[in-house]
Design a binder for these strands. Structure first.
Lengths: 103, 103
DNA sequence: TATGCTACCTTGTAATGCAAGATACTATTA
DNA sequence: TAATAGTATCTTGCATTACAAGGTAGCATA
Protein backbone atom coordinates (compact mmCIF):
# COMPACT_ATOMS: atom_id res chain seq x y z
CA UNK A 1 0.00 0.00 0.00
CA UNK A 2 1.55 3.25 -1.11
CA UNK A 3 1.45 5.70 1.79
CA UNK A 4 1.31 8.72 -0.43
CA UNK A 5 -1.93 7.80 -2.13
CA UNK A 6 -3.70 8.20 1.15
CA UNK A 7 -2.85 11.81 1.74
CA UNK A 8 -5.98 13.86 1.54
CA UNK A 9 -8.19 10.92 0.69
CA UNK A 10 -8.60 9.90 4.29
CA UNK A 11 -10.36 13.17 5.00
CA UNK A 12 -12.82 12.34 2.26
CA UNK A 13 -13.42 8.85 3.63
CA UNK A 14 -13.93 10.03 7.19
CA UNK A 15 -16.31 12.82 6.19
CA UNK A 16 -18.19 10.38 4.00
CA UNK A 17 -18.73 7.96 6.89
CA UNK A 18 -19.69 10.74 9.29
CA UNK A 19 -22.12 12.05 6.70
CA UNK A 20 -24.06 8.82 7.08
CA UNK A 21 -23.90 8.50 10.86
CA UNK A 22 -22.08 9.60 14.00
CA UNK A 23 -19.00 7.50 14.70
CA UNK A 24 -16.27 7.26 17.31
CA UNK A 25 -12.59 7.23 16.35
CA UNK A 26 -11.85 3.58 16.90
CA UNK A 27 -14.90 2.65 14.85
CA UNK A 28 -13.67 4.76 11.93
CA UNK A 29 -10.27 3.08 12.03
CA UNK A 30 -11.85 -0.35 11.97
CA UNK A 31 -14.19 0.47 9.13
CA UNK A 32 -11.72 2.25 6.88
CA UNK A 33 -8.92 -0.22 7.45
CA UNK A 34 -11.05 -2.93 5.91
CA UNK A 35 -10.15 -1.32 2.58
CA UNK A 36 -7.25 1.03 3.25
CA UNK A 37 -4.50 0.29 5.73
CA UNK A 38 -4.55 3.04 8.38
CA UNK A 39 -3.66 3.36 12.04
CA UNK A 40 -5.08 5.20 15.04
CA UNK A 41 -2.17 7.62 15.07
CA UNK A 42 -3.54 8.92 11.79
CA UNK A 43 -7.22 9.20 12.65
CA UNK A 44 -7.12 10.94 16.00
CA UNK A 45 -5.07 13.93 14.86
CA UNK A 46 -7.29 14.18 11.78
CA UNK A 47 -10.42 14.26 13.92
CA UNK A 48 -8.90 16.94 16.11
CA UNK A 49 -8.24 18.98 12.96
CA UNK A 50 -11.84 18.52 11.90
CA UNK A 51 -13.12 19.74 15.24
CA UNK A 52 -10.79 22.73 15.15
CA UNK A 53 -12.06 23.57 11.64
CA UNK A 54 -15.69 23.25 12.73
CA UNK A 55 -16.43 20.24 10.54
CA UNK A 56 -17.51 18.09 13.49
CA UNK A 57 -18.75 18.35 17.05
CA UNK A 58 -18.20 15.69 19.68
CA UNK A 59 -20.04 14.10 22.56
CA UNK A 60 -19.14 11.33 24.97
CA UNK A 61 -21.12 8.15 25.42
CA UNK A 62 -20.47 5.25 27.73
CA UNK A 63 -19.39 2.01 26.16
CA UNK A 64 -20.53 -1.50 27.15
CA UNK A 65 -16.85 -2.42 26.89
CA UNK A 66 -13.79 -0.30 27.56
CA UNK A 67 -13.57 3.43 28.19
CA UNK A 68 -16.25 5.91 27.05
CA UNK A 69 -16.51 6.56 23.34
CA UNK A 70 -16.08 10.00 21.86
CA UNK A 71 -18.61 10.33 19.07
CA UNK A 72 -18.07 12.70 16.16
CA UNK A 73 -21.05 14.40 14.54
CA UNK A 74 -20.70 16.19 11.21
CA UNK A 75 -21.81 19.85 10.99
CA UNK A 76 -23.35 21.73 8.06
CA UNK A 77 -19.91 23.17 7.42
CA UNK A 78 -18.48 19.67 7.44
CA UNK A 79 -21.11 18.56 4.97
CA UNK A 80 -20.20 21.38 2.62
CA UNK A 81 -16.54 20.49 2.93
CA UNK A 82 -17.42 16.89 2.14
CA UNK A 83 -19.31 17.82 -1.00
CA UNK A 84 -16.49 20.03 -2.22
CA UNK A 85 -13.92 17.36 -1.49
CA UNK A 86 -15.96 14.74 -3.29
CA UNK A 87 -16.24 16.90 -6.40
CA UNK A 88 -12.51 17.58 -6.31
CA UNK A 89 -11.78 13.91 -5.90
CA UNK A 90 -13.90 12.93 -8.88
CA UNK A 91 -12.33 15.59 -11.09
CA UNK A 92 -8.92 14.49 -9.92
CA UNK A 93 -9.55 10.84 -10.80
CA UNK A 94 -10.65 11.85 -14.28
CA UNK A 95 -7.50 13.92 -14.79
CA UNK A 96 -5.22 11.15 -13.57
CA UNK A 97 -6.91 8.60 -15.78
CA UNK A 98 -6.49 10.85 -18.82
CA UNK A 99 -2.77 11.11 -18.15
CA UNK A 100 -2.32 7.41 -17.46
CA UNK A 101 -4.40 6.15 -20.36
CA UNK A 102 -2.79 8.65 -22.74
CA UNK A 103 -5.70 11.09 -23.19
CA UNK B 1 -7.29 21.45 -6.22
CA UNK B 2 -6.52 19.59 -3.04
CA UNK B 3 -2.75 19.38 -2.63
CA UNK B 4 -2.88 16.16 -0.71
CA UNK B 5 -4.55 14.14 -3.43
CA UNK B 6 -1.49 14.53 -5.54
CA UNK B 7 0.94 12.87 -3.20
CA UNK B 8 2.11 9.66 -4.72
CA UNK B 9 -0.01 10.00 -7.81
CA UNK B 10 2.45 12.29 -9.53
CA UNK B 11 4.99 9.50 -9.56
CA UNK B 12 2.48 7.32 -11.33
CA UNK B 13 1.74 10.03 -13.91
CA UNK B 14 5.38 10.78 -14.63
CA UNK B 15 6.30 7.11 -14.99
CA UNK B 16 3.30 6.60 -17.22
CA UNK B 17 4.38 9.38 -19.58
CA UNK B 18 8.00 8.23 -19.59
CA UNK B 19 6.80 4.71 -20.34
CA UNK B 20 5.48 6.02 -23.65
CA UNK B 21 8.41 8.25 -24.60
CA UNK B 22 11.45 10.10 -23.31
CA UNK B 23 10.59 13.55 -21.95
CA UNK B 24 12.38 16.51 -20.41
CA UNK B 25 11.24 18.05 -17.14
CA UNK B 26 9.60 21.15 -18.45
CA UNK B 27 7.66 19.08 -20.96
CA UNK B 28 6.32 16.84 -18.18
CA UNK B 29 5.17 19.86 -16.19
CA UNK B 30 3.36 21.27 -19.20
CA UNK B 31 1.68 18.01 -20.05
CA UNK B 32 0.60 17.02 -16.55
CA UNK B 33 -0.55 20.48 -15.56
CA UNK B 34 -3.15 20.36 -18.29
CA UNK B 35 -5.07 18.09 -15.94
CA UNK B 36 -3.45 18.43 -12.53
CA UNK B 37 -2.05 21.67 -11.22
CA UNK B 38 1.67 21.14 -10.53
CA UNK B 39 4.81 23.26 -10.54
CA UNK B 40 8.43 22.79 -11.53
CA UNK B 41 9.54 22.78 -7.91
CA UNK B 42 7.69 19.49 -7.63
CA UNK B 43 8.84 17.74 -10.77
CA UNK B 44 12.57 18.33 -10.67
CA UNK B 45 13.13 16.85 -7.20
CA UNK B 46 10.91 13.92 -8.17
CA UNK B 47 12.99 13.25 -11.29
CA UNK B 48 16.16 13.40 -9.24
CA UNK B 49 14.65 10.80 -6.90
CA UNK B 50 13.82 8.61 -9.87
CA UNK B 51 17.37 8.79 -11.16
CA UNK B 52 18.76 8.00 -7.72
CA UNK B 53 16.45 4.98 -7.51
CA UNK B 54 17.45 3.77 -10.96
CA UNK B 55 14.03 4.29 -12.52
CA UNK B 56 15.36 6.62 -15.20
CA UNK B 57 18.56 7.57 -16.99
CA UNK B 58 19.21 10.99 -18.48
CA UNK B 59 20.85 12.55 -21.49
CA UNK B 60 21.24 16.11 -22.69
CA UNK B 61 20.02 17.40 -26.01
CA UNK B 62 20.27 20.87 -27.46
CA UNK B 63 17.07 22.84 -27.75
CA UNK B 64 16.03 25.05 -30.68
CA UNK B 65 14.99 27.53 -28.03
CA UNK B 66 16.46 28.15 -24.59
CA UNK B 67 19.03 26.06 -22.71
CA UNK B 68 19.70 22.37 -23.42
CA UNK B 69 17.01 19.90 -22.43
CA UNK B 70 17.66 17.07 -20.03
CA UNK B 71 15.74 14.07 -21.30
CA UNK B 72 14.62 11.29 -18.98
CA UNK B 73 14.48 7.71 -20.22
CA UNK B 74 12.70 5.01 -18.23
CA UNK B 75 14.63 1.83 -17.30
CA UNK B 76 13.38 -1.73 -16.93
CA UNK B 77 13.35 -1.16 -13.21
CA UNK B 78 11.30 1.98 -13.73
CA UNK B 79 8.87 0.04 -15.86
CA UNK B 80 8.43 -2.54 -13.12
CA UNK B 81 7.86 0.21 -10.58
CA UNK B 82 5.29 1.73 -12.90
CA UNK B 83 3.37 -1.50 -13.22
CA UNK B 84 3.34 -2.06 -9.48
CA UNK B 85 2.25 1.50 -8.83
CA UNK B 86 -0.53 1.21 -11.37
CA UNK B 87 -1.87 -1.93 -9.75
CA UNK B 88 -1.75 -0.32 -6.33
CA UNK B 89 -3.49 2.75 -7.64
CA UNK B 90 -6.32 0.75 -9.14
CA UNK B 91 -6.82 -1.26 -5.97
CA UNK B 92 -6.73 1.93 -3.96
CA UNK B 93 -9.43 3.58 -6.07
CA UNK B 94 -11.68 0.57 -5.62
CA UNK B 95 -11.22 0.70 -1.84
CA UNK B 96 -11.92 4.41 -1.64
CA UNK B 97 -15.02 4.08 -3.78
CA UNK B 98 -16.36 1.33 -1.55
CA UNK B 99 -15.98 3.53 1.49
CA UNK B 100 -17.46 6.60 -0.16
CA UNK B 101 -20.39 4.84 -1.79
CA UNK B 102 -21.14 2.88 1.37
CA UNK B 103 -19.86 -0.58 0.37
C1' DT C 1 -2.61 -12.28 38.32
C1' DA C 2 -2.21 -11.52 33.63
C1' DT C 3 -3.70 -11.47 29.14
C1' DG C 4 -6.43 -9.46 25.54
C1' DC C 5 -9.66 -6.43 23.71
C1' DT C 6 -11.67 -1.92 23.49
C1' DA C 7 -10.82 2.99 23.34
C1' DC C 8 -8.55 7.14 23.93
C1' DC C 9 -4.33 10.09 23.26
C1' DT C 10 0.75 12.16 22.20
C1' DT C 11 5.48 12.61 20.34
C1' DG C 12 8.85 12.51 16.83
C1' DT C 13 10.11 11.25 12.21
C1' DA C 14 9.82 10.89 7.25
C1' DA C 15 7.98 12.11 2.94
C1' DT C 16 6.86 15.39 -0.39
C1' DG C 17 4.33 19.38 -2.84
C1' DC C 18 5.14 24.13 -3.52
C1' DA C 19 6.18 29.00 -3.27
C1' DA C 20 9.86 31.68 -4.21
C1' DG C 21 13.89 32.61 -6.07
C1' DA C 22 18.22 32.01 -8.94
C1' DT C 23 20.47 31.05 -13.36
C1' DA C 24 20.88 31.08 -18.37
C1' DC C 25 19.80 30.91 -23.31
C1' DT C 26 17.07 32.73 -27.28
C1' DA C 27 13.93 35.76 -29.71
C1' DT C 28 11.30 39.81 -30.16
C1' DT C 29 10.36 44.53 -29.66
C1' DA C 30 11.10 49.38 -28.49
C1' DT D 1 21.30 48.81 -27.25
C1' DA D 2 18.08 47.67 -23.61
C1' DA D 3 14.09 45.52 -22.05
C1' DT D 4 10.82 41.97 -22.04
C1' DA D 5 9.12 37.37 -22.49
C1' DG D 6 9.42 32.56 -23.20
C1' DT D 7 11.96 28.29 -22.54
C1' DA D 8 14.50 25.42 -19.39
C1' DT D 9 17.13 24.13 -15.53
C1' DC D 10 17.83 24.01 -10.47
C1' DT D 11 17.72 24.96 -4.99
C1' DT D 12 16.03 26.35 -0.33
C1' DG D 13 12.81 26.40 3.26
C1' DC D 14 8.14 25.67 4.79
C1' DA D 15 3.79 23.26 5.62
C1' DT D 16 1.20 19.24 5.72
C1' DT D 17 0.28 14.78 7.17
C1' DA D 18 0.70 9.47 7.76
C1' DC D 19 2.59 6.53 10.97
C1' DA D 20 5.41 3.95 14.25
C1' DA D 21 5.83 3.75 18.83
C1' DG D 22 4.47 4.53 23.08
C1' DG D 23 1.27 5.68 26.99
C1' DT D 24 -3.30 5.51 29.76
C1' DA D 25 -7.44 3.22 31.13
C1' DG D 26 -11.68 0.11 31.59
C1' DC D 27 -13.62 -4.42 31.28
C1' DA D 28 -13.80 -9.50 30.68
C1' DT D 29 -11.90 -13.95 30.80
C1' DA D 30 -8.63 -17.50 31.96
Amino acid sequence: MNIQFKKGVLELCVLSLLNRQDCYGYELVEHISKYINISEGTIYPLLRRFRKDGYVTTYLQESPEGPPRKYYKITDEGRKAFENLLEEWEAFIIGVNRIIRGE
